[in-house]
Nucleic acid binder design. Structure first.
Lengths: 196, 196
DNA sequence: CGTTAAAACTAATATCTGTTAGTTTTGCAG
DNA sequence: CTGCAAAACTAACAGATATTAGTTTTAACG
C-alpha cells in the first residue's frame, strides 16, 4: 500500500487523529479496529505504530484537545465583565460553533470518553465536572441577580449541556438551514423558550 | 456456578435483558462481552444461549421495546384533543419519566442503536424518523396557531429531543433533588426558557 | 548516485470475540 | 424414587483484537 497522503498543512499524526475521530464517531471507540483505521489511511495496521503509541492514546489526544478548548473558553468567559445572560449565550454559542467546525472530535469527547485509559479518564471527568460547576455557578448568579427564573440551577445546567452535547443535525441539515439560523434558534430556545 | 437467580416476577430472559441493558449502557454494546454479561448473572457464557439467540438479538429486544413505547405514546398523543403546548409537554414528560423508570434501556436505545443488526437498524431508524417528523409537525402547528414563536420547527424538535435524550442526572441527582422538580424544571426550561 | 532516516511492510504473538457441540447437572412431575 | 426437560457445564471453534519484532521500501539530501 501507499504512504499516508497529507497536504502540508496536516502532519501525519494529525491526519491519523482526524481519521480516528471520524471512525470513533461512526463506529464507536471499541467498535473500530486499528485495521479499519489503517485502511482509512491506505496503510497496514502495524504501520500506525510508527506514528502513535497505542489506540487509547488516540482517544486521549482527541478528548484532551476538546477538553482544553472548553476549559479555556470557560476561563475566558468568567473573566469577562458582561451580564450573566450574555455569558450563557456565549458559552452555548461556543458549543454550537465547535460542533460545526470539529463535529467528530467533539462527538467523540462527548460520547466515548468512558473508554479513556483510567488515568486520563479521571482527569477528563474532573475537567468536565469543573466545567459543569462553573456553568451552574453562573446560572445561580443569574437567578440571584433576578435575570433568570428560579429554577434548580443544576437542572438548568444539565438540560442545556445535554441539549448542545447531543446536537448533531448540521450533519443532515446544514445544507437546508443556514448555520446562523440553527445557532440563533437553539440559543433562543434554550434561553427564552419556545412559547409566546 | 449457579443458576440464574430470579424472583418470580422476572423471567430468566428478562433478567438477562435487564443485565444486558445495564452493561451495554455502562460499557457500550461493542465494549461488553458475552462473558461479562454471563458473569453478571453468575453463569458461563455459553449457557446464555439456552435462553437467547445472539448478542445482537439482545440489543434488538432492548431497542424494540423502547421504540414501541415511544411510538405508542406518540400515537396516543396525536389523537388527543388538547392544545399543542400541552401535547409537547406530555411528550417531554413521557421522555423524562421513562428515563427515570428504565434508564438503562432508554440510554441504550438512544446511544447504541447504531450497532443493531442491519435489518433492525433500518426499521429502528424509520421509527425514530417518524417520531421526529410527528414532533416537528406538532411544533409547526403550534407556530401556525400562534402559540409558539416562529423558530425553525426541525431545529426546535432536535433541540428538545437532544436535551431529553442526553439527560442522565437522576442517576446522580435524584437523591438531592425530587423527581418532580427535575421534571417540571426541565419542561419549563424547554418550553418557556430560563430568562425572565 | 549513495546514504540515511522515516515509514512502510510481513510475520507472528497472546488474548479475546461470539458461538457451537456435546455432556453433565438440576429440579420438578409422575 | 424415577424420568425428563431445562439449564447449567466444559471443550473447542474460527476469526478478530492490539501490538511486537524484524525487514524492506521510500524519498529527500549531500
Amino acid at each position: 500500500m501507499g504512504k499516508i497522503i497529507t497536504d502540508k498543512s496536516l502532519s501525519k499524526k494529525d491526519k491519523i487523529l482526524r481519521n480516528a475521530a471520524s471512525l470513533f464517531r461512526a463506529r464507536g471507540f471499541t467498535g473500530c479496529s486499528m485495521r479499519e483505521l489503517a485502511d482509512s489511511l491506505g496503510i497496514e495496521a502495524p504501520s500506525l505504530y510508527n506514528h502513535i503509541g497505542s489506540k487509547g492514546e488516540l482517544l486521549q489526544h482527541i478528548c484532551e484537545k476538546v477538553a482544553e478548548s472548553f476549559t479555556g473558553n470557560m476561563k475566558e468567559n468568567v473573566q469577562q465583565e458582561v451580564p450573566v445572560d450574555e455569558k450563557l449565550e456565549n458559552l452555548i454559542r461556543f458549543h454550537i460553533r465547535f460542533m460545526m467546525e470539529d463535529f467528530d472530535a467533539l462527538w467523540v469527547a462527548n460520547h466515548e470518553w468512558k473508554h479513556l485509559p483510567p488515568l486520563h479518564l479521571k482527569t477528563f471527568l474532573q475537567q468536565r465536572k469543573d466545567y459543569e460547576n462553573n456553568f451552574t455557578t453562573l446560572v445561580k448568579q443569574g437567578i440571584e441577580a433576578g435575570q433568570l427564573k428560579n429554577l434548580d440551577a443544576s437542572v438548568v445546567t444539565l438540560t442545556i449541556l445535554s441539549a448542545v452535547r447531543g446536537l448533531e443535525f448540521w450533519q443532515r441539515k446544514s445544507k437546508s438551514i443556514p448555520d446562523s439560523t440553527i445557532e440563533n434558534d437553539v440559543i433562543h430556545h434554550l434561553l427564552k423558550g419556545i412559547m409566546k
